[in-house]
């Protein structure tokens, strides 16, 4: 028959055109979950601004430890740093875990996975597209959070230079450059939890198990990091270096930990991703 290609496929079918990124993003964007996260990303900075404004009248000089909270209200950029600082440990971890851990498992839960696979979207391609879509959504959320923080923060506290906790001032241009570096680092470092959730997502049909499992794992490591006795073993934890981006506040920038953090994160991410692909390639899809 003339409507069939030599490899048996129907005319017009090309594996490399299946499940394009735009299509996958359209599928995801319509979801309430995505809307919810974006809404949270917008709301959180506003909430923090309100909290800081409210608390400003009270005596804020109690805490002698120098940290980013003390200088949060110095400028919009400072506020952005504070938001990043406040969200790194939990909020962003959950967002990444949600977008990555939900990808495959939720499709399995809906029962849509088998139709996509029988389309057929080759399994490796399906995973790749899902991975990329999750990355786009996660980074998008991170950027939304930052953009809203910068804008709302600048309205609330003025568009001034960054003041670091040690009294160094970084002009706006330089500040934006550093901020970009921080976002880049965070985007890469959070891949660790993201890819872990992604891996879990390929071995379970319950999105909650994948997301929760990854977040839980990260928290276990975060708790173990508090155990001094573990010594430098802790430097190898997947959570290690989650605050290394604050090194970008130093002048000159101390990039030793950043570099290590990036490499270590990439390796973890690569390993988890590979495990995910391996699990999915061998799996019988019974959902």
């Amino acid at each position: 028959m003339n409507h069939v290609q030599v490899n048996g496929a129907v005319a017009g079918y090309r594996p490399s055109r299946t499940l394009r990124l735009t299509v996958e993003l359209r599928r995801q964007f319509a979801r309430r979950r995505t809307f919810g996260v974006v809404a949270l990303m917008v709301a959180l900075p506003l909430l923090l601004i309100a909290a800081l404004k409210l608390g400003a009248s009270e005596d804020a000089g109690e805490n002698n430890r120098i940290n980013l909270v003390d200088v949060a209200t110095a400028s919009g950029l400072n506020f952005t740093l504070f938001v990043l600082f406040a969200t790194t440990g939990f909020f962003l971890v959950v967002v990444y875990a949600l977008f990555f851990g939900d990808t495959v498992a939720s499709e399995a839960q809906w029962g849509a996975l088998r139709y996509t696979l029988a389309t057929p979207v080759p399994r490796m391609r399906l995973l790749r597209q899902k991975w990329l879509a999750a990355l786009v959504l996660s980074v998008g959320a991170l950027l939304t959070l930052t953009a809203v923080s910068v804008l709302a923060g600048s309205v609330a506290f003025g568009f001034g230079a960054i003041e670091t906790p040690v009294g160094v001032t970084l002009a706006q241009g330089e500040g934006f450059l550093r901020l970009a570096g921080m976002l880049g680092y965070l985007a890469v470092h959070l891949l660790v939890v993201g890819t872990l959730a992604f891996w879990f997502s390929t071995i379970t049909d319950a999105p909650l198990a994948a997301v929760g499992g990854a977040v839980f794992t990260m928290f276990v490591f975060a708790i173990l990091e508090q155990v001094e006795q573990l010594g430098s073993l802790r430097d190898w934890f997947p959570t290690a270096g989650e605050f290394a981006w604050t090194d970008l506040l130093q002048t000159p920038v101390a990039d030793g930990d950043l570099f290590r953090g990036v490499i270590q994160s990439l390796v973890y991410a690569a390993v988890f991703t590979a495990l995910g692909f391996r699990a999915f390639a061998r799996r019988d899809v019974t959902s």
Partner: peptide, 22 residues
Amino acid sequence: PGAPVLSRLGSFVEGTGLLPHL
């Protein structure tokens, strides 16, 4: 899995697999 010939196949097996939000 993923054989191109499956593109000549239309299927409905156990559950609708529709995206509930669309």
